[in-house]
């Protein structure tokens, strides 16, 4: 018993140390966001013993339209996830319940579209967006985010739908349910948890996407990724403000992410690991 507890203690200390180190940059950013700029670059940095201040947060809010960027991030990530679900649910349903020889190839093909490097289509998308007035609009980004995340959504929904027993649908059919009833009264309620996790994962992916959001936006539709990137230019005395802005950009999604960690594994591994 005693040696058991001893090994447990050693493993506990080891695990807490390593995970603490991994988490440290985030913790340090959070702490720095409450320091003065002078304190933030002090050569004898302090973890807790300093004068805590909220002025960085008010400075960031005064200096830039944070809430506009925040709203843009919400519209782009939630909007693209909702549109994506509308398109992906029927496809995943169809592949999960009416399996053909081609289903597996189709899934693989969808996944392969994810392998298309964004720079391969960068110029046409940029020019098309410029000519249609979609550049620097939320609508434009919703369209791009929907398309780049569609394969992941279909895959993820497919792995959930495949686990729904077919007998349930057959029983409903026996009772004379139409396809519409089948979907709305039988399938959707059972599949709702899977749909919710797919949505959650896609909100996270779209929130953090930093290729298209940086390239296709300027002032109007810039989400938080682009807002933070604007802090890359001035060097020097701005650590505390950078930290405050960073905290405001990552906290919402960090919380969402912690809630959905189990679904994340499943979704992102395309069902290879459950």
């Amino acid at each position: 018993m005693n040696t058991n507890n001893q090994t447990k203690a050693i493993y506990t200390i080891l695990a807490w140390t390593i995970s603490g180190l991994i988490f440290f940059p985030i913790l340090w950013t959070a702490i720095t966001s409450f320091k003065t700029e002078a304190e933030a670059i002090s050569s004898s940095p302090s973890l807790f013993m300093f004068e805590w201040t909220l002025e960085n947060y008010s400075d960031v809010l005064a200096r830039s339209p944070y809430f506009e960027h925040f709203w843009n991030s919400i519209v782009i990530s939630v909007g693209s996830s909702l549109v994506g679900l509308l398109i992906a649910i029927p496809a995943a349903w169809s592949m999960a319940f009416v399996q053909t020889k081609r289903t597996k190839n189709l899934l693989m093909w969808m996944l392969s579209t994810k392998m298309l490097p964004p720079v391969g289509v960068l110029i046409p998308i940029y020019l098309l967006f410029r000519d249609t007035g979609l550049l620097d609009t939320k609508l434009g980004l919703v369209i791009v985010m929907t398309l780049i995340n569609l394969p992941i959504m279909v895959w993820m929904l497919y792995t959930y739908f495949k686990e729904i027993p077919h007998e349930i649908l057959e029983a409903a059919r026996m009772d004379g349910a139409s396809i519409k009833d089948e979907i709305f009264h039988v399938l959707l309620p059972i599949a709702l948890p899977g749909i919710a996790s797919t949505m959650l994962l896609n909100v996270i992916l779209a929130w953090n996407e930093a290729f298209w959001t940086l390239i296709l936006t300027a002032a109007n539709a810039a989400p938080l990724t682009a807002f933070i990137a604007s802090y890359s230019s001035p060097e020097g005395l701005f650590y505390a403000k950078l930290s405050a802005a960073s905290v405001m950009a990552i906290v919402p999604i960090l919380i969402l992410g912690w809630f959905s960690q189990k679904q994340l594994v499943r979704g992102l591994s395309f069902g290879a690991v459950k």
Partner: peptide, 18 residues
């Protein structure tokens, strides 16, 4: 687990600048 997982949710621009 929560501490280990956290960096994954940090957007690339934030983690790079930090």
């Amino acid at each position: 687990r929560i501490m280990v997982l956290a960096p994954f949710f940090v957007m690339p621009t934030v983690s790079a600048l930090v």
